[in-house]
Computed example of a mutant assay.
Amino acid sequence: MEIKQKGIYLIGSALVTIGLLAGCGSSEESAPEKDKPVEEPKQQQKEETEQQKDKPIASEESKNDNVIKISAFEMGYTPPSVTLEEGKEYTLVLKNNGKIFHDLTAKKLDVKITHMGKMPDHPEKMSFSDEIDKILGLNKVHASGSHDDGHGEEENYIHMNARSGQTVKIKFIPQETGEFKFFCSVPGHEEAGMHGGIEIE
């Protein structure tokens, strides 16, 4: 009996020892997994550093500050006013969100035009009431007429034309400080409230 109990005791002890060794072995095998989370943040930092390299540098982002977007509609502009700096080059983008032809003119502001995008000619002259009829779908015959489109090569002021849905742009450098008005030169539009302001600092 004693021998039998000693045998069971030895077998039990052996099983406990094997279990402990197996437990230690599994903890040693899992040890590298515990190390992995330490390595992952390093990998994440490396990826974040590479992503930052792909981002534009501040000077490239600041170029977007020089893009002024103005939307024309019946009868106004959004935004109605802008503030610029003298001697700094700007890209002025005019989008006509209205249903009829509009322009943006600032004749009293002295600027140096550095780029003039392609723009349509003004349509035949028509009165403001004729344009309202056009919006309402009433057809009328219009007399043809000429219009000085203000796009001469020596131009030193802003004048942009856009058909309905069209986007046009110019680049220019303001040559003086002060407050100036811009407006739509199509007959009747300025009088109907289609004007805004440019402040040059």
Rank of each mutant, 00 (worst) to 15 (best):
H159Q: 08
M119I: 00
A72Y: 01
V67Y: 02
S81A: 01
D130K: 05
I170H: 10
H102L: 03
K134H: 07
S164V: 00
Y90T: 08
E60Q: 14
P120W: 05
H115I: 00
K118P: 01
M116I: 11
R163M: 10
H102Q: 05
G165H: 07
K169I: 01
I100K: 13
D133E: 08
Q166H: 07
G87L: 02
I68L: 04
V67S: 00
V93R: 04
K88Y: 06
E131W: 07
D148L: 04
V93D: 02
A106I: 03
S81R: 00
I57Y: 13
P56A: 06
I100Y: 13
E61K: 15
E154S: 14
A162Y: 05
M75F: 14
M75A: 07
K63R: 14
L109Y: 11
S127G: 12
G150T: 09
I173C: 10
I100R: 14
P79T: 01
I68M: 01
F73T: 07
H122T: 10
E61H: 08
V67W: 01
N139F: 11
V67D: 00
K112A: 11
F172Q: 04
G150K: 03
I113N: 10
V168Y: 03
A58F: 08
G165E: 06
M75R: 14
P174G: 03
K88H: 11
A106T: 08
V168L: 05
G145N: 12
Y90A: 07
E89M: 04
K169W: 11
K140C: 00
K112W: 07
I170P: 07
E74N: 08
E131N: 05
E124F: 14
L92P: 01
H159D: 05
I135K: 12
I113S: 06
H122R: 10
V93K: 07
T78W: 10
L136E: 13
S129G: 03
I70E: 03
N66S: 15
R163F: 09
K125W: 11
K69W: 07
P174A: 02
H159N: 05
P79I: 00
L136Q: 13
F172E: 03
S164N: 09
P79L: 00
P79G: 00
P120N: 12
G98P: 01
A58E: 10
E89Q: 12
Q175I: 00
T105V: 09
P174I: 02
D130N: 09
E155A: 11
E154T: 13
V141H: 11
N64I: 09
Q166M: 11
L109W: 09
K95Y: 03
F73Q: 04
I100N: 12
P56R: 14
L109P: 03
S81Y: 01
N66R: 15
A72M: 00
L138K: 15
L84F: 05
P80R: 14
A72H: 04
Y77R: 02
K63Q: 12
E124C: 08
P120H: 08
Q166G: 06
F172H: 09
G76S: 01
D65Q: 08
G137T: 02
G150M: 08
G145P: 04
K99L: 10
L92V: 06
H147V: 09
Q166Y: 06
S127R: 09
M160R: 05
V141K: 13
K107E: 09
P123W: 12
N64K: 15
F101A: 06
L104E: 00
T83C: 02
Y90W: 12
S164H: 10
A106L: 04
N66D: 13
